[in-house]
Simulated assay, not measured.
Amino acid sequence: MRFDAERDRFLGYVRVNDGLSLNTVKSYGEDATELLHILELRGVEDLSTVTLADLRLWVSHESQGHARSTLARKIVVVRRFFAFLQDQGIIPTNPAAELITPKQSHELPRILTATQATQMMESAEHPVHELLSDTSSKERKGDAGGSRQAALEFRDAALVELLYATGVRISELVGLDIADIDFSRRTLRVLGKGNKQRVVPFGAPAGIALERWLEHGRPQLLVRASSDAVFLGARGGRLGVRQASDVVHREARKAGVPDISPHSLRHSAATHMLDGGADLREVQELLGHASLNTTQRYTHVSIEQLRHRYDQAFPRA
């Protein structure tokens, strides 16, 4: 691509000077690449000729199919990118300085009920159980993950089980390496925002799904023996955030539950932990929130659920 050098300089700068995690830098790179690709398609040959009108057209394009929070993040990255170009003397002025981020909705996040979450997990596990119960021959049973499609079934079940069981961010999940798993203690070591590590426990169902993936599925997709990634894509490389997000959406549709994003599944996990009696600070630690105020959003969700149950159950509500 024409502007690869400028993008790479920008990514190198924010990685070193802003202390961003590798996952965040990767996300910045994806957003910058999308913008630069569109500008190139529009015939832009020099970034110094980009105008505010060009960027507003890009915003209009990106607003179709993206949530306001996602669009806001993309705009922040683009403003940061052009500010960097100006600071480095690559462009004379910053055309993105006047880009306005969309107002964020203050609606409570969509979450699954505990019943719906269970339904989604069981639906994801169903093909796996069929593969494991296929006893037409001992060889076939021993090679339950023998096909690529079967391997993907094991992967997808482990992915949604682990995501819901831990409440980790999707970027943290796909960033896991084999060495980050401690099966004896049923914990994961994840790298969160600001390169902060934390240890997160997971339950027995997620542990079983993860073991099945590692035993039956992952070896079928692994093309490079040196790969340490826990979750792999169909071609054998580390699974990307967008691919993993597609898995969550697909499994939700398959289960017949409301279509949710990985972040909404994270919200669901946190809410169900609080509903089950977990302490707010414990949930804060599990989710890797820097501020308790962020975690308190989940108490609002729980209160809304309590009010709904009250309205349904109390005769004089």
Rank of each mutant, 00 (worst) to 15 (best):
T166L: 10
G142S: 14
Q149M: 11
R148P: 08
V174C: 01
I170R: 13
E161V: 10
S171N: 03
R148N: 11
V160H: 05
L162Q: 03
D156M: 01
L173M: 12
F154L: 05
E172G: 02
Y164F: 15
F154G: 01
D180I: 08
I170Y: 05
V168P: 10
G175A: 10
E161W: 14
V160S: 04
A157G: 12
V168S: 10
I170H: 04
V168R: 12
R155H: 11
A150T: 12
A157W: 13
I170T: 12
S147Q: 07
R148A: 11
L152N: 06
K141W: 14
R148F: 10
A151L: 00
I178R: 14
L176V: 12
A165P: 02
I181M: 07
D156K: 01
A150I: 05
Q149A: 13
L159Y: 02
Q149L: 12
G145A: 12
G167E: 08
V168N: 09
A150C: 09
I181E: 08
L176G: 00
L176S: 09
D156I: 00
D143S: 09
D180V: 09
K141Q: 15
T166Q: 12
G146A: 07
G167I: 09
L159V: 13
V168H: 07
F154M: 04
L173F: 13
G167C: 12
D156S: 01
V168G: 10
L152I: 07
R169L: 06
A157H: 15
A151P: 03
T166H: 13
D180R: 06
F154S: 02
D143P: 00
A158R: 10
A144Q: 05
L162T: 06
A179M: 11
R169Q: 04
E153S: 12
R169V: 00
A151K: 05
I170G: 05
L173C: 11
V160Y: 05
E153N: 11
L173T: 14
A151R: 03
A158W: 15
G145F: 02
L176A: 10
D156W: 01
A151Q: 06
D143F: 08
R169G: 03
A151T: 03
S171V: 00
R169T: 03
R155C: 07
V174A: 06
L163A: 04
A157K: 13
G145Q: 11
A151D: 01
I178S: 14
L152F: 06
V160L: 00
R148G: 07
L176F: 03
D156Q: 00
A157L: 12
D156N: 06
A179C: 08
D177I: 11
A157N: 15
D156F: 03
V160Q: 03
A157D: 15
G146R: 05
L159G: 04
Q149R: 15
D156T: 01
G142D: 15
D143K: 12
T166P: 08
L152H: 06
A151M: 02
V174W: 02
G146P: 06
V160W: 11
V174Y: 01
L159M: 04
E161L: 10
D156Y: 00
E161H: 15
A150M: 01
A158E: 07
A158M: 07
D177V: 11
E161A: 11
L159S: 09
I170A: 01
V174T: 01
A144D: 00
L173H: 08
I178Y: 15
L159F: 14
S147W: 04
E172W: 02
K141R: 15
L152D: 08
A165Q: 03
